[in-house]
Nucleic acid binder design. Structure first.
Length: 495
DNA sequence: TCTGGGGTCCTGGCTCTA
DNA sequence: TCTGTAGAGCCAGGACCC
């Protein structure tokens, strides 16, 4: 606990949705929802305009569409978010060597360690300068919380949202926390919140009053004791710059439940290979293989097997996952499958010949599968037809070209744009750039040879371009071109 | 049309070993 | 050799976070 508010928490405002609005001038000021568009998709982020309709993260996409029928629903573009995140983290790195990223859009910074602040006024000045720099470099807004501990800094940034800065003076924590709901504290989710409510505790002050023994009795030793300390405003957790990964996993939810045991086994093989590719990408091997199965009724099972030594051999992981699958009853249907590896090490005990063979195999498979995190076009097709469809490794996908809403494209004649919607053999594209005025929409055949998938454009105009600067920021302050509105083609989905 | 994906941490039961 | 015990490791599940 510090005597000066030199722990900074940065939280980008509605990050994915704000990035989409910055990239797509026609969406500024309009409700935007980013998430899975398939029948079982959920909302990753909603713009503040969409939140006014009651849409929020983790809500089923179908429900979000009902609440905000006019919202633009887009697939996530992680490559764009990652590049913006790198710009933001680079700005944070200039403030201190101690930067702890929590996700693409959130991080703690120890300002004292970097000499960027030593008291409240200098911390506030640093926070405001950071917010201005983020806006200048990325065109997006972030909210900053400043306090003497991580927990309070995070609560402060939440209070600062959107586009603000809140500083909590050390010594005032208990006064601030007392009336807040127990759910404010980190580690209190729906289950613990309900547990505490049944015991008559709804505010942080109630927890402090109950005492440590009572919380330990209710929640167990580790959780109860740490919650009691937090309720008193005590949080000594340091900002940690480097954290070692403890596990690597991949999982897939299927648009329709899988019943065919052979198909289930094939999917497990596929996931095992993807998992190993990730594992190797992170420079690790692992000793414990974990299989995750979510059944038709949403009940979730995990089975694990620990090997004699760490491996990064896809065949070994595939076989272990297959063995684990044998012990699971999948009659009734499988909704989700996952394969993970824990007990990570940075070496392997496999022999070199097996490794070389596995590498060749992994490379061949990699050529047939798109970048992880970004849905493939085939997956886009799956989500629109309701039928799961994934190309098998080593075989080209015979399906016709399909386009996902929000995807970047380039047309030979009209230049860069993004997919506004597709269906019945047509794709509607809006041609605009982050620094242009809202653009026009045009409709093409899905197999138009002049249309191709493209990389995301940067959100801020690269140096050297002569067009006027973009109107960005604040979660979308750009003006909509009336002509563009008139030409907007609604998101067409087959049905 | 309910409920994603990738993680971390904790707890409790079980087994093995010293 | 038998018994009790403590600790470590494994395993499964739950809760939480972004």
């Amino acid at each position: 606990m510090r005597t000066a508010p030199t722990i900074l928490h940065l939280d980008m405002d509605a990050f994915f949705a704000a990035a989409e609005q910055a990239a797509k001038p026609s969406l500024r000021g309009k409700p935007v929802i980013v998430g899975g568009l398939g029948p079982r998709g959920v909302v990753a982020t909603a713009s503040y305009e969409a939140r006014r309709f009651g849409v929020h993260s983790a809500m089923p996409m179908a429900q979000a569409r009902r609440l905000a029928p006019n919202a633009a629903c887009l697939v996530p573009r992680f490559s764009l978010y990652r590049s913006v995140s790198e710009q933001v983290m680079e700005l944070l790195g200039r403030l201190s060597p101690l930067v702890e990223p929590l996700s693409l859009d959130e991080a703690f910074v120890d300002l004292e360690a970097g000499g960027a602040a030593h008291d409240a006024p200098s911390a506030r000045a640093t926070g405001e300068r950071l917010r201005a720099d983020i806006r200048a470099v990325t065109g997006l807004t972030g909210s900053v919380g400043l306090a003497g501990s991580k927990m309070i800094a995070k609560i402060a940034s939440e209070q600062a949202k959107p586009d603000g800065l809140v500083l909590i003076d050390p010594g005032t924590e208990r006064h601030l926390l007392g009336p807040l709901p127990v759910r404010t504290l980190p580690g209190v989710g729906p289950a613990t919140g309900e547990h505490l409510r049944r015991a008559g505790m709804t505010t942080v002050a109630d927890l402090a009053e109950a005492g440590e023994d009572e919380l330990v009795r209710l929640l167990g030793r580790a959780h109860g004791a740490s919650l009691f300390r937090m309720a008193l405003g005590h949080d000594d957790r340091p900002v940690v710059a480097e954290r070692d990964a403890k596990s690597v996993s991949v999982e897939d939810t299927f648009d329709v439940d899988l019943h065919d045991r052979v198909r289930v086994r094939l999917e497990v093989d596929r996931l095992a290979e993807r998992c190993v590719r990730r594992l190797r990408g992170s420079g690790h091997s692992g000793r414990t293989i974990v299989l995750k199965v979510r059944r038709y009724d949403f009940s979730t099972l995990t089975r694990s097997e620990t090997l004699r030594g760490p491996t990064d051999d896809p065949a070994v992981v595939r076989e272990a996952a297959g063995r684990l699958l044998e012990s699971v009853d999948t009659t009734g249907g499988v909704r989700l499958l996952g394969v993970g590896v824990t007990g990570l090490a940075d070496y392997t005990q496999e022999d070199l010949f097996a490794q070389a063979a596995a590498e060749a195999e992994a490379e061949a498979a990699a050529e047939t599968e798109s970048e992880e995190g970004a849905p493939t076009m085939a997956e886009g097709a799956a989500s629109e037809t309701g039928e799961p469809h994934r190309p098998e490794p080593g075989r080209p996908d015979p399906a016709e070209r399909r386009w996902a809403a929000g995807q970047d494209v380039r047309h030979a004649m009209y230049g860069p744009g993004w997919v506004q919607g597709s269906g019945v053999g047509r794709v509607t594209v809006r041609f605009e750039e982050p620094w242009s005025a809202p653009g026009r929409v045009r409709t093409f055949r899905v197999d138009d040879e002049d249309l191709e998938a493209a990389e995301p454009l940067p959100l801020v105009r690269p140096a050297g371009r002569t067009e006027p600067p973009p109107a960005m920021g604040g979660g979308g302050s750009g003006q909509m071109d009336p002509a563009a509105i008139a030409e907007t083609v609604p998101d067409r989905r087959p049905g």
